[in-house]
Design a binder for these strands. Structure first.
Length: 424
RNA sequence: GUGAAUGUAGCUCAGUUGGUUAGAGCACCAGGCUGUGGCCCUGGGGGUCGGGGGUUCGAGUCCCCUCAUUCACCCCA
């Protein structure tokens, strides 16, 4: 490893030419699937006023409390690199008065910035494919969003992922549940780990997803959120499940799913891939009926998910679902003799005009080296232009699979090559 | 933020108890084949051994600091 004075900042990634086709594939599928559900793309600024997230995500959350990249610009504004997109999208919609026309179906493909300790699948700059559906208070929107996530992952070839569903209640029933849970935990305080004893003060719901064995035993006896849901929340959850069943999407209830962001209400869900170690959640989402209100707008029901693209790529890699090196070139134009470079470029241009992906020699290497290059590019055809052929107005057209070659008039090359090189 | 492991060529890795000019395979370039890829053979370019400091006659090897990566926790996508 060469010693560089300048390295990329911790927790960031360079996407090099060898990897960018993988990203392009995932992005293409995201655009296609989201649009097939009638969702339109939205893009928001990379930085926002700090208050968008203080008020939207919540002041007490880890994201806002210790993970934001905050800075002040020369005008003294308190800004922050966006740590997530849901609150930013809501802000944009409010600013554009977009809630006048409902329902609103949006998706984004954006980078987020959080100051965290990096490990694989967790970066300081990461990309999410996310979806937001506004205007529908009923359970159909929840099911639609989950179906979209399923379709997206399925289109990429992933099948054995698990969808876990829970409801964390709303302003009606959550306080009562919280009290009941706290009472139970208080009775078993000595059996809980030190972390959980601390969690009891700040956010008792978090105890539910502790992996510690002693805590798990206490949790198993604890009151279930599901038993404390008010009638409306219960009906909502059952409605989501009924719609998912009708769609043939399998899921399991998982009382341990709790969200760390303040804006979630009722439905919360995760899509997990087990082999991913600690960062096994590829997709997380839920309902956030209180968000727009918190940002100062008239209340709007909303539901959506965020899907980590870097984690998804790790999963796809592990499942062997990414092609290593997709062919990027159809034809290579080789030349020799020292004088024919410009003519080779002219031929390459003519071939490109007929829709082919073409690379021509610009280093003036030996023919042998040029053919090796063509092979490495997996070009199906090579045009070879030599001084002798050029004088007669022809070039050699070589088929790299069969090793057959023939002379073709230069003007006929686009027609001949175009018909002979099938595209995938 | 807490705890731990790892850093030798572009990549994957060797490198004995500290001891001469730090190696291999793959990749790259060239030649064998003076105008034809894959296979083979030969040769070549490439390393401040992550960085800095220390111990020592002598450090890739030992010690300290630092940077980066990885794993677990926290949290999250």
């Amino acid at each position: 490893m060469a010693t560089l004075e300048l390295q990329r900042p911790r927790g960031t990634q360079d996407i090099l030419p060898g990897d960018s086709p993988k990203w392009q594939r995932v992005e293409a599928v995201a655009h296609r699937v989201a649009q097939s559900f009638g969702y339109a793309e939205i893009r928001t600024p990379t930085f926002e006023h700090v208050d968008v997230f203080r008020r939207g995500v919540g002041d007490g959350t880890d994201i806002v409390e210790k993970e934001m990249y905050e800075f002040q610009d020369h005008g003294g504004r308190a800004l922050v690199l966006r740590p997530e997109s849901t609150a930013a999208v809501a802000r944009a919609l409010l600013q554009a008065s977009a809630f006048s026309e409902l329902p609103l179906r949006l998706y984004y493909l954006q980078r987020h910035f959080r100051y965290e300790r990096p490990q694989s699948g967790r970066l300081r700059e990461h990309t999410q494919f996310g979806v937001e559906a506004y205007g529908a208070a009923g359970p159909l929107a929840d099911a639609e969003v989950i179906a979209l996530a399923q379709s997206f992952l399925g289109a990429l070839g992933l099948t054995n992922l698990s969808v876990r569903l829970n409801s964390i209640g709303d302003g009606q029933c959550r306080p009562a549940y919280r009290a009941a849970l706290l009472a139970h935990l208080e009775g078993h305080r000595q059996d809980l780990c030190a972390d959980c004893q601390r969690r009891m003060e700040r956010n008792p719901l978090r105890v539910l997803d502790c992996k510690n064995e002693g805590c798990r035993r206490v949790i198993a006896q604890a009151p279930q959120t599901l038993d404390h849901l008010c009638a409306d929340c219960r009906a909502h959850l059952e409605g989501v499940e009924a719609a998912l069943s009708a769609l043939g999407i399998s899921f399991s209830r998982d009382a341990s799913i709790v969200r760390g962001l303040d804006y979630y209400t009722r439905t919360v869900f995760e899509v997990q891939y087990e082999n991913l170690g600690a960062q096994s959640t590829v997709c997380g989402g839920g309902r956030y009926d209180g968000l727009v209100d918190a940002l100062g707008g008239a209340p709007q029901p909303g539901v959506g998910f965020g899907l980590g693209v870097e984690r998804l790529l790790l999963t796809l890699e592990e499942e062997g679902l990414l092609e290593d090196r997709p062919a990027g070139t159809d034809v290579f134009v080789a030349w020799l003799g020292g004088e024919l470079g410009p003519e080779a470029m002219r031929i390459a241009q003519a071939l490109r005009a007929s829709g082919l992906r073409v690379e021509e020699e610009i280093l003036g290497r030996s023919l042998k080296a040029q053919l090796r290059r063509a092979q490495k590019l997996r070009a199906a055809k090579v045009v070879i232009l030599g001084p002798q052929e050029f004088l007669r107005g022809v070039a050699i057209l070589r088929d790299m699979t069969s090793s057959q070659q023939e002379e073709v008039p230069i003007e006929d090359l686009p027609a001949r090559v175009g018909s002979a090189a099938p595209r995938d």
